[in-house]
């Protein structure tokens, strides 16, 4: 009797723990949704989503989120230009070329990159990469999109290479042997057989990395600047969605004001973007698993 009651208590306790994390997530989404709704009662959706000026803290505020979205996309795009080829190539090396001993050392070392605090990356971008780049591009300002973009690419590199390598190693050995038996070289086998066969898994890795880049905060808050600007120029200061949220959160914006609610509206948009990317990534990986398990 006694043990059965204990069992009951343990079971409930575990359920509460599990429910808590689900409820927290639901609560966050609820708060985001409510505050966004309040915000959108004062600012029309069309103006928010299509406006090209973002000056909510000015005397004559404008609430066009596009400059923040563009800033986010520009920095993320630069990050992907760095992380995509390097990540894919290192995955090909690790999966198809590296001897076991090398892989056992290189892979954990690469994954250590993922353990570096992002604030360190941020200052690395601001204090080291930016001055370095300014020697090549003298017109570049101290805050810009290029430097944090490159550093963010380095940050998400392990994610891309590790997940891509997993996808490539999941390709059955029989496929490689089939190619070798036809006289394919290692490079042909890797690029023409293994990579296409692992395509959905690799794409899933890329999308997950994009999602990380879009949501990354610290690096851009430190090194990209705080000037919402609709531009594709990587040399000038700009502001991303995440950096804007940091800026307002750190300031003395009174609670309940329209300015205060902007961070929830921007946060909601950011959430929808990363959530959508994660969904696509998961869907692709599931599909991949179906084909080769």
């Amino acid at each position: 009797m006694h043990t059965r009651r204990l069992e009951w208590i343990i079971e409930r306790a575990l359920f509460v723990c599990a429910a808590l994390s689900v409820l927290t997530t639901a609560g966050i989404i609820l708060v985001l949704a409510v505050e966004t709704f309040e915000f959108l009662r004062e600012v029309p959706v069309a103006e928010f989503l299509t406006g090209t000026e973002w000056t909510p803290l000015f005397a004559t505020p404008r609430f066009g989120v596009l400059p923040l979205v563009a800033g986010t996309l520009l920095v993320s795009a630069i990050a992907m230009v760095v992380a995509l080829p390097m990540g894919l190539l290192s995955a090909i090396y690790l999966s198809e070329y590296a001897p076991d001993g090398v892989r056992r050392i290189v892979k954990p070392v690469l994954e250590v990159l993922a353990g570096v605090p992002t604030v360190v990356y941020g200052y690395f971008a601001l204090m080291f990469v930016t001055p370095l780049l300014q020697r090549v591009f003298p017109q570049m300002s101290g805050f810009n999109a290029l430097s944090p973009g490159i550093v963010m690419g380095i940050m998400i590199l392990p994610l891309v290479s590790s997940l891509s390598e997993d996808a490539m190693r999941a390709v059955p050995r029989g496929l490689r042997e089939g190619a070798y038996a036809l006289g394919a070289t290692r490079m042909q086998t890797a690029l023409q057989i293994v990579v296409p066969a692992a395509f959905s898994g690799i794409t899933a890795a890329f999308i997950l990395a994009v999602s990380r880049a879009v949501g990354e905060t610290m690096i851009v808050a430190i090194a990209a600047g705080q000037q919402p600007r609709l531009t594709a120029n990587p040399f000038v200061p700009l502001e991303t969605m995440t950096a804007y949220i940091v800026q307002v959160s750190l300031g003395d914006t009174p609670q309940g004001t329209l300015e205060y609610r902007t961070i929830f509206a921007v946060g909601m948009l950011l959430f929808l973007m990363t959530f959508g990317l994660n969904l696509v990534s998961t869907w692709l990986r599931e599909r991949f698993r179906e084909v080769y398990s």
């Binding site: 059955p172 029989g174 496929l175 042997e177 089939g178 190619a179 038996a181 036809l182 006289g183 394919a184 070289t185 042909q188 023409q192 057989i193 296409p196 066969a197 084909v291």
Partner: peptide, 22 residues
Amino acid sequence: FQKSNPFPKSIFENVAYGLRIN
């Protein structure tokens, strides 16, 4: 091979692959 191992390509491309790379 023991386990059939067609490439995840079309029927045509499977047969053409060896011809192409060589």
